[in-house]
């Protein structure tokens, strides 16, 4: 009798996703990524690797040249309004409306996400959960630090209560303390069953919380490792090797860590 594992249905799925810009630049090449309920998938890669392009296709900001981006099984580019009901987004540098208070920003974006039944208490709970002090609730966002704004951004995502979350370099520019708090929140959301696709340069946090790490280079997924596969591996070395364009050299001498991993 075979021992089979029943996997949850994918909530975020890139199927052979390709994007070639009008000037011929190939931003994505047949990318396949799947993120299921209760999983965090971290996309690592340098500038221009295709991480943000992937997120932009999921949000229908750009159309793929070929392939599909599915959110909760809905094609994000064919039925974007339907697809976006099932996803929340936190950008690299959350810039909400500076003349609005935290509460007003939350209220606007949460309603925009389709939730209109929240009360002030719900907003307060979300802000407390992300670590904001109560005296900040009614302050204008222009007086907030970057870390506080990121917290507001994640509070909006929490309140939207979508099954999938897209994070575009969410810890970029945060101080270590704020970064740690942010990571804790992401892990909590994963534990609540959210499917999280995150683009990041932060190798350490990726290794710390991701269930899958995909390394993108020039629009191609050059490596994809599970948490178990990364145990005992220096992810930084692996990443640097891929990013430095050493792949050809690696293939020739067959002695690199990446090659060893591939064999493993």
């Amino acid at each position: 009798m075979q021992n089979t594992t029943i996997k949850a249905a994918p909530l975020l799925e890139a199927i052979n996703l390709s994007k070639v810009y009008e000037d011929g630049v190939k931003a994505l090449n047949a990318l396949n990524v799947t993120v299921r309920e209760g999983e965090i998938y971290a996309m690592l890669g340098g500038n221009g690797a295709g991480k943000t392009t992937t997120i932009n296709i999921f949000l229908d900001f750009i159309q793929p040249t070929s392939g599909q981006a599915l959110i909760h099984g809905v094609n994000a580019n064919e039925l974007p309004l339907e697809a976006k009901k099932h996803v929340a987004f936190v950008s690299e540098n959350v810039q909400l409306y500076p003349n609005f208070t935290a509460m007003q920003n939350l209220d606007f974006f949460v309603r925009l996400g389709g939730k209109s039944n929240y009360k002030r208490g719900d907003y307060e709970n979300a802000l407390i959960r992300v670590g904001l002090q109560s005296d900040a609730f009614d302050k204008k966002l222009k007086d907030f630090s970057k870390g506080m704004r990121q917290k507001c951004g994640i509070a909006i995502a929490i309140l939207k209560d979508a099954p999938a979350i897209l994070l575009d370099e969410p810890t970029s520019g945060l101080d270590p303390k704020a970064g740690k708090e942010f990571t804790r929140l992401i892990a909590e959301l994963r534990d609540e069953g959210k499917a999280i696709l995150m683009s990041t340069h932060d190798i350490f946090r990726a290794k710390e919380i991701a269930d899958f790490v995909g390394i993108l280079n020039n629009g191609e997924l050059v490596a994809e490792k599970t948490r178990a596969e990364l145990e005992g591996v220096n992810l930084e070395d692996l990443y640097v090797e891929y990013m430095a364009g050493y792949m050809d050299e690696v293939a020739e001498n067959g002695s690199s860590l990446a090659n060893n991993l591939s064999e493993a």
């Binding site: 949000l59 229908d60 900001f61 974007p80 309004l81 339907e82 976006k84 009901k85 996803v87 929340a88 987004f89 950008s91 540098n93 959350v94 810039q95 909400l96 409306y97 500076p98 974006f109 925009l112 996400g113 389709g114 951004g153 909006i156 939207k160 897209l166």
Partner: peptide, 14 residues
């Protein structure tokens, strides 16, 4: 430039 446009359109907004 502020990033609010992207955040708005991450929601089901026409």
């Amino acid at each position: 430039n502020r990033g609010t446009l992207k955040l708005c359109f991450a929601n089901p907004v026409s």
